[in-house]
Computed example of a mutant assay.
Amino acid sequence: MQAGSIGGNSFSFVSHHLDQISIIKLSLLIFDDISTEMMIQFIDAWVAFAKEKHLSVVLEAVRLKEIAQCYASNKNIYQQGYYWEKGPELKDMPEEI
């Protein structure tokens, strides 16, 4: 695979530009075809990397209650998505959209 075809949000890109960034965004849209458990493993890996490198993380397209709740208490993880646009309470969220 050529370097130009790996995408700007790749691990390689992020790790080579750490001196220029303070926050990374992980879009959850790409995880539609995998289990919630596998999605959490991917998120946890990025969060561990971010923590080691002193970066914050934005989770984009949070659509599952389990994901929203799992990361809601972490002050270094910000969330964007269908649950957060109108500011509902976690207890009022449906399990899945």
Rank of each mutant, 00 (worst) to 15 (best):
V58F: 09
N9W: 02
L26H: 07
Q41L: 13
V57L: 05
I24K: 01
K51S: 13
D32E: 14
L28S: 01
H54W: 02
V62N: 05
L29G: 14
I21Y: 01
A61K: 08
G4N: 13
T36D: 07
I21Q: 04
A45T: 13
K51R: 14
Q20I: 02
F11M: 09
E66N: 13
V57Y: 10
S56Y: 07
K91Q: 11
W84C: 06
K91H: 07
I67E: 03
Y83C: 08
N9H: 10
T36C: 11
S5R: 13
S10Q: 09
C70V: 08
E95V: 08
D19W: 07
N9Y: 12
K91C: 10
L29Q: 12
Y82D: 08
G4V: 00
Q2K: 15
G81D: 00
A72K: 12
S27M: 00
I77K: 08
Q80T: 05
D19I: 09
F31M: 07
I23P: 02
K86H: 14
E89Q: 14
F42L: 11
I23H: 08
E85G: 03
A72V: 10
A48P: 01
E95C: 05
D92T: 10
N76L: 09
M38P: 03
F49L: 07
T36H: 03
S12K: 13
S35G: 09
L59P: 03
L55F: 10
Y83P: 01
A3P: 00
S22C: 08
V62L: 11
Y71K: 06
K25S: 05
Q2E: 11
I30S: 13
A50F: 06
E89I: 09
Y71W: 01
I43P: 01
W46E: 00
G7N: 04
V62H: 11
H54K: 15
I30H: 03
E89D: 14
I34T: 11
D19C: 04
Y78T: 06
Y78C: 05
I6G: 04
K51W: 10
D44F: 00
M93H: 02
S73F: 03
G81C: 04
E85C: 09
L64A: 08
V62F: 08
K51Q: 13
Q41V: 14
A61F: 05
S35I: 02
Y82T: 03
V14P: 02
I97T: 04
D33I: 01
S56H: 10
G87T: 09
Q79Y: 05
E52W: 04
D33F: 04
G4T: 05
K91V: 12
D44A: 04
S10T: 07
S73A: 15
Q69K: 15
E37M: 00
K91Y: 04
Y83M: 12
D33W: 00
V14Y: 04
K53T: 00
C70K: 15
L28G: 02
M38T: 11
K91F: 00
W46Y: 12
W46P: 00
K25Y: 02
A50S: 13
C70E: 13
L28M: 07
K25W: 02
A68I: 10
V57W: 10
T36S: 09
S22L: 05
V47S: 06
